[in-house]
Simulated assay, not measured.
Amino acid sequence: MTTSPAIAVRNLQKAYQDLAVLRGVDFEVAAGSVFALLGANGAGKTTVVRVLATLLKADAGTAVVNGFDVGTQPAKVRESISLTGQFAAVDEILTGRENLVLVARLRHLEGPGAIADRLLERFSLTDAGRRRVSTYSGGMRRRLDLAMSLIGSPPVIVLDEPTTGLDPQARLEVWQAVRELAEHGTTVLLTTQYLDEAEQLADRIAILHEGRIIVNGTLAELKQLLPPATVEYVEKQTTLEDVFLAVVGRTSEDHR
């Protein structure tokens, strides 16, 4: 017995006048997995996302999300997904809880207050829930944005470069939130230009280059594309990220 993929893309093509952005993109995302679409700026990642979210029409090819064709069943696709862009789409004047309640009401869900409280707890925002979002850190805003994307329990979450512009500590907070999404069975399509982000989070990684998928596989499979590394024993050097997180953590403890 086989399970249909949550996302299936076949020969996706898109051009802007004479500029071909997507040149025949193919990939599948298994249900309940984290799939990273890795590529440099301009590789076509956001164009793929916009097509999957029914915000842009492809010139050729097909894309199916949660069993629905993006070209012929766009309303069903939009009911199946939640899209989180590069910048948190939160209202800074409202509190974190009010943002969540607002979205729940817009989706005509029962018990919006209870829904908000559950999501605040799930994303470790309960203590900050009654504060205005304008006081939140970048990582807190992104976690709130992810919480808002889960209202209505969409089976597919699309994260378009979710850690762009975040500091190292905030990135780690977002990574943990993405891991928790997958643990709860949500399918996550993650676009990123950060290699370490794909390595840390993804079950499968596809590299998009000049509008085409050039490799697609698990991290272990991709590593097999290179010759075996020569084993050398060297002293581990402390990285700047190690220092940053250690100092920030110690300072936070001193102020408790």
Results as ranks from 00 to 15, higher is better:
residue 115 I to C: 08
residue 254 D to P: 00
residue 201 L to E: 08
residue 36 A to R: 13
residue 214 I to Q: 09
residue 36 A to W: 12
residue 71 G to Y: 05
residue 203 D to N: 15
residue 29 V to C: 09
residue 73 Q to E: 15
residue 62 T to Q: 15
residue 48 V to G: 03
residue 206 A to D: 11
residue 221 E to H: 12
residue 236 K to F: 05
residue 197 E to Y: 10
residue 138 G to Y: 12
residue 22 L to N: 03
residue 44 G to N: 02
residue 109 L to P: 04
residue 53 A to F: 02
residue 89 A to L: 04
residue 208 L to R: 11
residue 246 A to K: 12
residue 223 K to T: 10
residue 132 R to A: 15
residue 11 N to T: 11
residue 55 L to V: 03
residue 25 V to E: 07
residue 6 A to M: 03
residue 9 V to R: 09
residue 251 T to N: 13
residue 216 N to H: 14
residue 198 A to L: 13
residue 220 A to Q: 08
residue 33 S to L: 09
residue 178 V to K: 12
residue 8 A to W: 04
residue 205 I to H: 12
residue 214 I to S: 10
residue 26 D to R: 15
residue 225 L to G: 05
residue 108 H to I: 08
residue 213 I to F: 04
residue 67 G to Q: 15
residue 147 A to V: 03
residue 175 W to H: 12
residue 136 Y to I: 03
residue 78 R to Q: 06
residue 203 D to E: 13
residue 251 T to C: 03
residue 175 W to K: 04
residue 104 A to M: 07
residue 119 L to Y: 02
residue 212 R to T: 09
residue 178 V to C: 08
residue 80 S to F: 09
residue 93 I to N: 07
residue 231 V to Q: 14
residue 158 V to C: 00
residue 197 E to M: 09
residue 250 R to Y: 05
residue 85 G to K: 01
residue 105 R to D: 04
residue 127 D to G: 01
residue 255 H to Q: 15
residue 103 V to H: 06
residue 203 D to G: 15
residue 51 V to W: 01
residue 88 A to P: 00
residue 232 E to N: 09
residue 91 D to M: 00
residue 24 G to M: 07
residue 150 L to Y: 06
residue 235 E to R: 08
residue 12 L to D: 09
residue 240 L to T: 05
residue 172 L to F: 08
residue 171 R to T: 11
residue 59 D to F: 09
residue 70 V to Q: 04
residue 49 V to I: 14
residue 74 P to K: 01
residue 46 T to S: 15
residue 120 L to N: 03
residue 220 A to E: 14
residue 77 V to Q: 10
residue 96 G to M: 02
residue 228 P to Q: 10
residue 166 L to G: 11
residue 174 V to M: 03
residue 19 L to R: 06
residue 78 R to F: 01
residue 143 R to C: 04
residue 75 A to G: 02
residue 206 A to F: 13
residue 72 T to D: 08
residue 112 P to S: 07
residue 126 T to L: 10
residue 207 I to N: 06
residue 158 V to G: 01
residue 201 L to Y: 12
residue 157 I to E: 08
residue 133 V to K: 04
residue 77 V to P: 11
